[in-house]
Each structure stands twice: as structure tokens, then as C-alpha cells.
């Protein structure tokens, strides 16, 4: 077991280093949320006048939305990295060494989790710089980050599974562009549920992106609704475990197809 843990760390380290050494990706992942914060923040500034946002400043409302959207959009591309490793022969090279197969999978999950958490922290800090207020304090923010990381894990694992299964960049690109906006806008990322059409609200109830938002926003409130945090957070955790399990299964079927 300890060997698996050590090897998981080696694999995590390797992925994080790749990320760190390609500052362009780092920059894009940071600039994009800034643009969203600025763009949506300006566009919808007056929307809080309609009420139901629980705050007079739209930026307060927006920060968790951007955190969750960014976690979704960056993790959706995880499969591209996996695909590249398959094509480059890296995965097969590791598979002929005694490295634990679990460590190979876990390395991906852990490094993506760390990246998502760091990205979320930076967005929260940027929001603070822009004047956002976080009444739930540090506990609320921590839970928002946990929720966004879990959501990232769900979509990262699914994207990895897709990469191993279809082995085509086009499919990943197609599915991602198809899913990103509907998943984001069929949630309370940018709009309070009380102003959403009824049918949209019902769909949002089944949208994992919305679970992360409800859990995060509830935890960040001045007077948190812990039941909401627990139910949505629990559902996300269960889904994340299921997605990782599925991607491990796909990994096994990849090994059989080599």
C-alpha cells in the first residue's frame, strides 16, 4: 500500500511539473476566470436589483459561479492529456514497469484535484481583490473549493475515460463544446434560481454543476444551510467516486486492447 502511495506521489509530481513548466496553460487558466469575472460582473451588475440573490453586489454572487465553471471547463480537457500520453507511448512504458496500476490512475486524479483547488483559491482571491464579500468566512470558502474540486474530479475522470475509450481528439472537443455551456447555464452559476424558468430549475436539480454551486453557496452564506451542503456535497462525492471507478474500469479495458 505504501508503495502505491509513494508511486501515486511520483505520478502526481510528474503531472504537476508538466503543468508548471508550461506557463502558457497556467496563464490561460488564470486569465480566463479574470475575463469571466470582469465580463459577467459588468454585464449583469444591475441584475441584483431584481432581488433573490441574497446580496446587493453581483460580484459576491458571481465568484462561486466562476470557481465552479472554471473547475468544470479545465477538467473537461483532462482526456486530451491522457490521449497524448497514450499516443506518445508513455502510458505503455509505465505499464511495462512494476508501477502500481492504481498509482497511474490516482496520479491523474490527485494532480487534477490539486490544480483545481489552486485555481479555485486564486479565483476567490481575485474576487476578494475586486471587492467581493464572503460572509461565510474561511469555512465557507474551503467548502466551496472542496465542492469545485469534487466536480472537477467527476468531469476529469469522465474525460480521461473518454480519452482512453475513443482515442480521438475530435470526440473530446465535440463533447466538451457541446456540454460546457448547457451545463453551466442550466445551473444557478450566474442566475438565482428564483429568477429561472421553472423547467430550468427542475433540470438544474439534476445537474452536478448545480450541486457544486448549491453546496458552495450554502456553505458561504452568513447563516449556512448545512442540510443543503451535506446533500449536494454527498451527491458530488458519490458521483466523483463513481466516475473514478468508471475510469479505472476503462483503464483496464484499455490495457486489454493494447
Amino acid at each position: 500500500m505504501s508503495a502505491t502511495l509513494t508511486q501515486t506521489w511520483y505520478m502526481t509530481q510528474r503531472q504537476l511539473m508538466a503543468y508548471w513548466r508550461q506557463p502558457v496553460f497556467l496563464l490561460i487558466n488564470l486569465i480566463q476566470p479574470v475575463i469571466w469575472l470582469f465580463l459577467f460582473g459588468s454585464l449583469f451588475r444591475k441584475i441584483t436589483d431584481l432581488g433573490g440573490f441574497g446580496t446587493g453586489s453581483y460580484l459576491d454572487y458571481l465568484v462561486p459561479g466562476i470557481v465552479v465553471m472554471s473547475a468544470l471547463s479545465s477538467n473537461m480537457w483532462a482526456g486530451m492529456g491522457t490521449l497524448e500520453e497514450i499516443e506518445r507511448g508513455t502510458l505503455n512504458r509505465f505499464l511495462t514497469t512494476p508501477v502500481s496500476r492504481g498509482a497511474l490512475m490516482n496520479g491523474n486524479v490527485v494532480s487534477q484535484g490539486i490544480t483545481t483547488a489552486v485555481q479555485s483559491v486564486i479565483i476567490v482571491a481575485l474576487g476578494k481583490l475586486g471587492g467581493a464579500d464572503y460572509p461565510g468566512g474561511i469555512t465557507g470558502l474551503a467548502l466551496l473549493i472542496v465542492a469545485s474540486t469534487l466536480l472537477g474530479t467527476v468531469f476529469g475522470a469522465l474525460s480521461n475515460a473518454l480519452g482512453m475509450l475513443v482515442r480521438e481528439r475530435e470526440s473530446i472537443i465535440g463533447i466538451n463544446t457541446f456540454l460546457l455551456l448547457p451545463l453551466t447555464f442550466l445551473s444557478e452559476a450566474f442566475m438565482t434560481p428564483s429568477l429561472m424558468p421553472g423547467w430550468m430549475r427542475h433540470i438544474a436539480d439534476f445537474n452536478p454543476v448545480n450541486w457544486a454551486l448549491v453546496a458552495g453557496r450554502s456553505a458561504m452564506a452568513e447563516d449556512p444551510d448545512w442540510a443543503d451542503v451535506a446533500t449536494r456535497g454527498g451527491a458530488l462525492l458519490a458521483l466523483a467516486l463513481a466516475a473514478v471507478w468508471l475510469s479505472t474500469r476503462t483503464f483496464r479495458s484499455y490495457q486489454r486492447s493494447v
Binding site: Q22, R88, P98
Partner: peptide, 20 residues
């Protein structure tokens, strides 16, 4: 596992990590 520990493999594409 024992086989893996005993062998070295140089595949057609060994996939050294390009950023490392």
C-alpha cells in the same frame, strides 16, 4: 509483476516526458 521487474522495454514510441 516479476516479469516487469526483470525486463527493460524500448518500444517504438517510448514516450519520454517532453517537458521533463
Amino acid at each position: 509483476g516479476r516479469v516487469r521487474a526483470a525486463i527493460g522495454v524500448v518500444a517504438q514510441k517510448s514516450g519520454a516526458d517532453p517537458v521533463a
